[in-house]
Nucleic acid binder design. Sequence first.
DNA 1: CGCGTTTGACCCGCGC
DNA 2: GCGCGGGTCAAACGCG
Length: 182
Amino acid sequence: MENYQNFFACSSSAPPPASMGFTSNMESSNVFGNVHGHSIPNGFLGLKSTEIHVPTGQEVENISRSSGGFGRSENEVKSCKKKYEKKIRKPRYAFQTRSQVDILDDGYRWRKYGQKAVKNNKFPRSYYRCTHQGCNVKKQVQRLSKDESIVVTTYEGVHTHPIEKPTDNFEHILNQMQIYAP
DNA sequence: CGCGTTTGACCCGCGC
DNA sequence: GCGCGGGTCAAACGCG
């Protein structure tokens, strides 16, 4: 009851290397495949793979420019290397939930660092980052234009620290969100 | 006063 | 080669 990460992990098995156990469970198209198996009216099927693609965990990003922040800082402090880590992305896991609010409190502290309008969606996509030091986990929340009751949360990275909020909040979460799996 | 949100600008990758 | 779309930063602002 200390970390309701199990909530994501579904208590399937020991979380491999990450504290986020759901990595093992949610990987592959489990998230989508399982959900859209049948019953999704027009929600996810309407989504294009370009908007949210769920790599099977092979895409691992190294955050090449995250450290340098942005090349625009002046002239890229180190414009020499960063070729070995070009387009490897961290595994991303998308969650489709039904909620009235976009911000699903999963126990971590997130800081919003951007918001962009998506082409095929009327609703903007919000970008959040874990404020914990050294934890560069990112997540983006997006609401489907077709079903505004559906919120897609995409996690990128794994938390390397315990949750900072009390667990009884877990109930609150379940209260405010429902896994879309009828 | 500290922290988080907002918002515009910038950069990069990819498709045409 | 250019344009578009997506992703991120950073300064300013607001709130507790």
